[in-house]
Amino acid sequence: MEVPILRQGQYLIASIQSALTDADLSHLREALIAQVGRSRCRGVIVDVTALDVMDSFAVRTLRDITHMARLRGAETVIVGIQPDVAFAMVQLGWTLKGVATVLDLEEGLAFLDGRTKERVVESKPKKPSSRG
């Protein structure tokens, strides 16, 4: 089952539609990282709403996507972790440290907007702020 990757402005959105095999997850990682370069995007959203379980392989793959995309200049945010999935992850002690997670797609877009703005601000020379 291939995961469709949509482009929206500066961002890529990978929307998982069903349970994925390990091979599907690896393929998603390769496709996303390649496309980050090809489309010069600044942010990646992985929507895991339809993912049935978050086991060790899925967690590892999401972490790898985040770190690899960051090395390629794009921020990643995971959206749509379901309550049951969160319950199992916490029992495993998996908090996805270093990986941004927000509630849903809307929040994900807002998160990336904030992040990419920060990057632009960071790269500009500092000048005294007029706001308190």
């Binding site: 049935d52 379980v53 086991d55 199992a88």
Partner: peptide, 17 residues
């Protein structure tokens, strides 16, 4: 419960892998 169903599914996923 559906939370525990997910927990069991995750455990099966690990040993099957």
């Amino acid at each position: 419960s559906s939370g525990e169903q997910t927990v069991i599914a995750a455990a099966i996923s690990e040993i099957a892998r």
